[in-house]
Write a protein that binds this DNA or RNA. Sequence first.
DNA 1: CCCTGATTCGC
DNA 2: GCGAATCAGG
Length: 178
Amino acid sequence: MSWTDERVELLKKLWSDGLSASQIAAELGGVTRNAVIGKVHRLGLSGRAKAPAPQTAQRPKKPVAAPPPRPHRPTAPTPITIGATALKADIVPAARPLPSAQPKVYSLSDAPLISNASILQLTEQTCKWPVGDPGSDGFHFCARRSEAGIPYCGYHARMAYQPVADRRRTDRRIAGAA
DNA sequence: CCCTGATTCGC
DNA sequence: GCGAATCAGG
């Protein structure tokens, strides 16, 4: 098979429609996807619009959750000592940064906890803290009740919003070490 | 391993 | 110009 004007036109059309090279090759018949790609390059229409149509028959992957802002923060608030009394300073600077938009209320999320909650089950009222390794079987979301306007439950909100300790560690310099 | 497009290079 | 082989990336 050769590249007749007709076939080239069809190639151009299908390519700009977002079909993959192999799909176009199948459509045209008598050529491989390599041939299609090669032709596309020779024609100089390499780049094309993104977000192609239904595109590939590639196996859909399960959604991967974005990692939590900070996985673990074992750091406890430093007790403040006044005389003999140790005051626990529970200074979690009330996570305010989020917009004060009215949270939507989903009535079905009355349950305080959805066990093994998938991302599809999360609402404005469920904690979206991912638990476990996103690729593994046991992965789920915390799904405890979250405060209005905050994506995490009380516990995980602390994880997420506690201020980062001063990272500047001038004392880490080791003279002579590479 | 499936797919994708990009590139190379002998024909 | 053509396209198989190969490469790199998701």
